[in-house]
Amino acid sequence: MADRGEDGVDGEALLDLPVSVLEKQPGLASDADWGALMKAAQDGDAASYRRLLGDVTPWLRRYYTHRLPLPMWDDAVQDVLIALHEKRHTYDPARPFEPWLAAIARHKWIDRLRAMRTMPTEVLDEALPAPDDHGAAVSDALTLDTLLAQLRPQQAEAIRLVKLEGLSVEEAALRARQSPSLVKVNIHRGLRRLGALVRRVHDAG
């Protein structure tokens, strides 16, 4: 049965999201390998640590391509790498590494969603180069759409226009036929609901 929260949001639908991105690409180390590398890193082995961080970086990029707008990907990945470094003592080598990493990535995702509430939006440069993996970018947009579909339509539209397409609040208000103050309220509430939604998925998992 779908887990509908107080906002009427279908949390279970989002449970499908991580599965596709948590699958590793061929050639990458297994979870046990990552766990062993992290264990060695906890003991001070810099070479193992360097390899681990290098390995998890593309994994994190795939994670965020499904969840955040393109300009935020690298910052989010770096946030996780720093958090992983600062909190590396909290990893228990007796347990799988991936859920631990995914929890940190999800925590930083919520931080980014929260930051979007107050962060000024810059209009994207038309000449901005396309990502290397265009196919992935297209599917990411679809996934982000899936996420936004969990919100009320006015909230999703306000977030899409201002935070993803880079319109000003006034332009978005004209386009969405909402007052500027309502656009701001819808962005604020929508992003807050997204954060709550992600947290609920974490609780369910």
């Binding site: 001070g44 810099a46 961080l53 593309p58 990945v77 790498l81 470094h85």
Partner: peptide
């Protein structure tokens, strides 16, 4: 080479810095 370097110079530099600062915990 660490595959993370493909993610960009900044991320690669960060990985080098974090690995360089590593202490046993």
């Amino acid at each position: 080479p660490p595959s993370g370097r493909r993610a960009g110079d900044a991320t690669g530099a960060l990985i080098e810095r974090l690995a360089g600062d590593l202490k046993p915990v």
